[in-house]
C-alpha cells in the first residue's frame, strides 16, 4: 500500500461548462465562483472521506469536458473506481450526452460505479428537473447508482453524491 489510507480514483465526466470543476471546488474547498474557467487536461484533487469506521482518500480527477471538437480522454478514465457524470440542466444537449459519457466510462471500467449529477438546479424550475429525472436512460440501476439534481452554487446534494460514490467504491 502507498499509505496507511485506502486511495481510490474517481472521475468527473461531462460536456464542457456543466460545472464539474465547480462541484469539485464545492466538495473539496467548500467554495464557489461564478466565473467560468475552462479546464484543460486534468486536475487531480485529494479528499479524505470518513466512512465509519474507515477513511478513504478520494483522488478526484476533474477531466477536461468534451466538446464538439474534443472527446473525453480515455487514458484519463483508466483505473477509475467510479465516476460522477455531470450535465447542465439549463442546456438540454448536455443532458442528451449523459448516455454517451456513461457508455464511454463503462467501456473502460466495466465494474465502475456511476452517479449522475444534474447540475445547476438553481437556474431551472422544479418541473424541468422532474422531467429530466424521469428519462428512462437515467433509470437503469444496473449502471447507475442514482440521479441527483445538484447545485454547486448552493451546495445542494454535492456532498451527498461524493459520499454516496465513496461508500459504493470502498
Amino acid at each position: 500500500m502507498v499509505d496507511h489510507k485506502v486511495s481510490k480514483k474517481i472521475c468527473l465526466v461531462g460536456d464542457f461548462g456543466v460545472g464539474k470543476t465547480s462541484l469539485v471546488r464545492r466538495f473539496v474547498d467548500r467554495s464557489f465562483s461564478d466565473q467560468y474557467l475552462t479546464t484543460v487536461g486534468v486536475k487531480i484533487s485529494r479528499k479524505l472521506v470518513e466512512i465509519n469506521p474507515q477513511s478513504l482518500q478520494l483522488l478526484i480527477w476533474d477531466l477536461e469536458g468534451s466538446s464538439k471538437f474534443k472527446a473525453i480522454s480515455a487514458t484519463h478514465l483508466q483505473g477509475a473506481s467510479g465516476a460522477i457524470i455531470v450535465a447542465d440542466l439549463s442546456r438540454a444537449e448536455t443532458v442528451k450526452h449523459l448516455e454517451d459519457h456513461i457508455h464511454t466510462f463503462l467501456t473502460i471500467n466495466p465494474k465502475g460505479m456511476i452517479i449522475v449529477a444534474l447540475n445547476k438546479t438553481d437556474l431551472v424550475t422544479t418541473e424541468a428537473i422532474a422531467q429530466v429525472q424521469k428519462m428512462p436512460e437515467l433509470n437503469d440501476p444496473t449502471k447507475i447508482l442514482g440521479v441527483y439534481p445538484t447545485s454547486a452554487k448552493t451546495g445542494d446534494s454535492v456532498d451527498q453524491i461524493f459520499t454516496k460514490l465513496a461508500i459504493a467504491i470502498l
Binding site: 464542457f16 467560468y36 475552462t38 484543460v40 477536461e64 469536458g65 471538437f69
Partner: peptide
C-alpha cells in the same frame, strides 16, 4: 478552449 467554450455557451 476558454474562448471557444465561452462563445459556444
Amino acid at each position: 478552449a476558454q474562448r471557444s467554450h465561452e462563445a459556444a455557451l
